[in-house]
Design a binder for these strands. Structure first.
Length: 859
RNA sequence: GGGCGUUUAGCUCAGCGGUAGAGCACUCGGUUUACACCCGAGCGGUCGCUGGUUCGAUCCCAGUAGCGCCCACCA
């Protein structure tokens, strides 16, 4: 038996045991196990964009507790970790950290040395680097960040098999993403389309519906004066006066009697004097503004509908960089001077200038009226989205296909949700889909589309017949690789080819996480043992993205659910209950600092005290409680092990009624803990174990320690019960407090506690209890606890030490309870430091009289 | 505007048809040799509000208010 420290400490357990787990490979996945023996978890790959947030650690610790339970219950847990380093957040981190921007037209500089910049002022221009240099920087920085992530996750005790680690930018992930895309394309589920799309002018990329959010934004109604044919003014409210040069029509509700006479006529726009038709459309609302709406290409998504359904001309004035184009558009040649006032300006400054000009011309009625209204932003962007026409790749998602939507909903219904109410979030999203999934991004650090286009003699690409690679060629980079049948020299030449310049949205890869980790197309043997997966844990904010898209890709590829159940964690809130946003961060609650202060086990205790889907305040008090629990586990383990005989307890011993009662209660707790964990209700499992643990320490151990020392008959029974009690409790806490449990387990048991049997219905304890007398009468432990508490209360009220001598204890009460007291009277006498314990039947409640030298205290 | 969650002791949260629970905080007490990063005892709540169902409601139903999240076509 290893040495038990004289003064056990929690300090350093994280470093000691995480190193030992790595050395022994206790969490290594054994791929010889069958599918039924495996429990596979589709772990979310955290976005690599700097530091891990406390909220991330919070969710992952809960999952780890579930994983550890499954492992202890006999399943082989497939629990890979990944890093989502593919995509815009990573690009943006690199841009900010190094003060660079990618310019794909620049040549590669092999010896370029760029270091992080300390602090860059807003005015300072970023340094432009080539695509290849930029990608190298991304790879370099993600490697640094990922090493930090892994270190923190090891310190917090995640029991992942680090040998199965993956990244979403790796060759393996690119191959899976490209293969899945090609399959989608061949089946007609992926298609190329030229259409207006939401566009971020800063990142200069299209964005998908799922990445768009509404933000309340200050704006103002401006009432413009259009002119009717007879020269009379027609008032139209707009919040986008700068788009007046892009005005293509005016719409009005067909039921609006005020404007019936205008329908079918033309109005002339102020300042630019362009004739635009007045059209009726059901989406025009008579109660908004003056009831007339100015249609511009494009001010908002309703404009897109009007433009399409009314067959309006495309009048584009805004460039992809968010500035008004320099050259005066052909429909404004007569208003060249006016247009040049805004040419080259941003939306913001063009709006100000145009309002000035309109006011000078007397084309504005009244003053602008400030309002606040919802405006669409890219979730990671700072300026409102614009709408531009561009050629983009889409994947069908059911938005325009009711049968696909119905199949998605049927799959969602079949999924097991924790908590159940989160199911509505996905249904909400699926019901509200309004366009297919736009997956192409005009960015750089991502998975390229594995597609080339042939060029005609006139140099025009043939968009309709893309050139595809062979499966064995994947992954390909069409910007660098040449398609079969062409030579590199033909790139960009007439009768040659071009590569698709875009990369896939990060979700287009993340949505394939089960395919990536389970070895789809690479390791079919592994795939058959791990897919479909058992559990998808994740945050609530990515139900519409990750949950939905993973289910979609699995449906399209396999016509099945990718997992059996999904667990949604809650939000982390500031101590004052404000939601912590990722962008704001919260410097004082860095995970590493909290681990240093409360230990990984303390932090984990706090996290595991929160149920799925429950928003939880950052509560240092709870972390302190967790640390105290861990410390208690050290101390009680040391004490109990010190009581046990060198060779261990005699397992043939007949247990005393009190010892038997304690073990029966513990068994009930363990059975319940197992049932809770089977429903993934880790929180209740922890609470049950914790409640019993304090009773075990404060009451049971106190009651039996004298007997365990040998001061009364029944020493062997106490030894046996203490041994089982300690062993079961250490195992019950192991999923939550892995470090301290491994420490105390190592003092007396072989192997890791994390591969020991979780004590449930069929445990070693169950077998021991089956060999003992069945329970009869009142619960001896409960009655003894009640009695001993009464004794303590008497001593406290007399301001005496707990060790103070008592001349006699007299217990009266119902016969059944008194009988139970008698069965534990020796333990009660020793624990109460009493000369004698007497009992008498009578009354309806247990009554304890404590006699001191000089008085009787009744409790 | 639609959906979901939440509202219980000063704080953080359990409970969910049958006399209100935990931890923290607070008060008081304790040299108990496992633990002072400890131990013991105690104070503290008309369970958001209004109706309804029921012998009985914190718990079920309806409505209502505050808070939070998700979704929604920016005139």
């Amino acid at each position: 038996m290893p040495e038990i420290p004289e003064r056990p400490s929690l300090d350093g357990l994280e470093a000691t045991w995480s190193a030992e787990w790595e050395r022994s490979g206790v969490f290594r996945f054994d791929r010889t196990k069958t599918r039924a023996e495996v429990y596979s978890i589709d772990t979310p790959p955290p976005t690599v964009s700097g530091q891990l947030h406390l909220g991330t650690v919070f969710g992952y610790v809960q999952v780890d507790a579930m994983a550890r339970y499954r492992r202890m219950s006999g399943r082989e847990v497939f629990y890979p970790m990944g890093w989502d380093d593919n995509g815009l957040p990573t690009e943006r981190r690199v841009e900010n950290l190094y003060g660079v921007r990618c310019n794909p037209t620049l040549p590669y500089e092999p010896d370029l040395h760029i270091e992080p910049v300390e602090r860059r002022s807003r005015s300072e221009r970023p340094r432009e680097v080539s695509r290849r240099n930029f990608l190298e920087l991304c790879e370099r920085q993600t490697a640094i960040d990922e090493a930090g992530f892994e270190s923190l996750f090891r310190t917090v005790g995640l029991s992942v098999d680090w040998q199965t680690n993956y990244t979403t930018i790796s060759a393996q992930s690119r191959r899976v993403a490209q293969q899945a895309f090609l399959n989608n394309f061949r089946r007609g589920d992926a298609y190329l389309s030229h259409a207006p799309t939401l566009w971020d002018v800063d990142f200069q990329t299209a964005v998908a519906q799922a990445e768009v959010e509404d933000r309340a934004t200050k704006s103002a109604y401006v009432r413009l004066l259009f002119r009717a044919a007879d020269g009379s003014p027609v008032e139209i409210d707009t919040t986008r006066p700068e788009l007046l040069p892009a005005c293509a029509a005016v719409v009005v509700s067909p039921e609006d009697e005020r404007y019936q006479h205008l329908i079918g006529t033309e109005l002339r726009t102020p300042l630019f004097d362009v004739a635009v038709p007045v059209r009726a459309h059901r989406l025009a609302e008579r109660d908004k503004g003056t009831g007339l709406a100015m249609v511009c290409t494009f001010g908002d998504t309703t404009d897109v509908t009007w433009w399409r359904e009314l067959g309006l001309p495309l009048r584009v004035v805004l460039g992809r960089n968010g500035r008004f184009q320099q050259e005066t558009p052909e429909w404004l040649v007569k208003a060249d001077a006016a247009y040049q006032e805004v040419a080259g300006k941003t939306v913001f400054s063009a709006r100000a200038r145009l309002v000035e000009l309109l006011a000078e011309h007397g084309d504005i009625a009244g003053e602008p009226r400030p309002i606040e209204h919802p405006v669409k932003y890219y979730e990671k962007g700072d300026r409102p989205l614009e709408i531009v026409s561009s050629r983009q790749w889409y994947i069908r998602n059911g938005a325009e296909d009711e049968s696909l939507r119905a199949r998605m909903q049927a799959n969602a219904d079949a999924l097991v949700w924790h908590p159940e109410f989160m199911r509505a979030r996905l249904k909400n999203w699926t019901d509200g889909l309004n366009s297919d999934w736009l997956i192409s991004r005009q960015r750089f650090f991502g998975v390229p589309f594995p597609v080339w286009y042939s060029l005609a003699a006139d140099g025009e690409p043939d968009w309709d017949n893309p050139i595809l690679p062979q499966p064995e060629q994947l992954p390909v980079d069409p910007q660098a690789d040449t398609p079969d049948g062409y030579t590199p020299a033909q790139r960009g030449e007439p009768n040659g080819f071009i590569g698709d310049p875009d990369v896939m949205d990060t979700w287009a890869t993340s949505s394939l996480s089960p395919q990536i980790v389970c070895g789809w197309g690479r390791d079919e043997e592994l795939f058959s043992r791990t897919f479909p997966m058992d559990l998808r844990p994740q945050g609530p904010e990515i139900i519409r993205t990750w949950t939905f898209s993973t289910m979609l890709r699995s449906l399209l590829e396999f016509d099945r659910l990718p997992w059996g159940s999904i667990s949604i964690n809650g939000w982390i809130l500031d101590p004052d209950r404000k939601k912590i946003s990722k962008s704001k961060g919260n410097a004082k609650d860095q995970p590493a600092d909290l681990i240093a202060e409360f230990g990984a086990d303390g932090l984990r205790y706090w996290a595991c005290h929160a149920g799925q889907g429950v928003d939880t305040a950052i509560d240092r008090g709870q972390m302190k409680v967790g640390r105290r629990l861990a410390t208690k586990l050290l101390n009680v383990s040391r004490f109990v092990l010190g009581l046990l005989p060198e060779a261990g307890a005699d397992h043939q011993t007949t247990l005393t009624p009190l010892d038997l009662a304690m073990l029966r209660q513990l068994h009930a707790v363990a059975v319940q803990a197992e049932a809770d964990f089977e429903r993934n209700d880790y929180r209740r499992s922890l609470e049950g174990a914790e409640n019993f643990f304090w009773k075990f320490c404060d009451d049971y151990v106190e009651l039996v320690k004298a007997r365990a020392y040998g001061e009364a008959d029944g020493q062997a029974s106490a030894h046996l019960a203490l041994e089982y009690g300690l062993s079961v409790l250490q195992r019950l806490f192991a999923p939550f407090l892995p470090f301290v449990c491994e420490e105390v387990w190592s003092w007396w048991q072989p192997g890791s506690v994390h591969r020991a049997d979780f004590p449930g219905a069929n445990s070693d304890l169950a077998r021991l209890l089956a060999s003992q007398q069945p329970a009869t009468g009142a619960d001896v432990l409960d009655v003894a606890c009640e009695t001993v508490r009464a004794i303590r209360r008497a001593k406290t009220q007399r301001q005496l030490s707990m060790r103070a001598a008592v001349s006699a204890i007299q217990v009266t009460g119902p016969a059944e309870l008194v009988a139970a007291v008698e069965l534990a009277s020796v333990d009660l006498r020793l624990a109460g430091a009493a000369a004698e314990v007497g009992t008498a039947a009578g009354g309806t409640e247990l009554q304890v009289e404590v006699e001191f030298d000089g008085g009787v205290h009744t409790a």
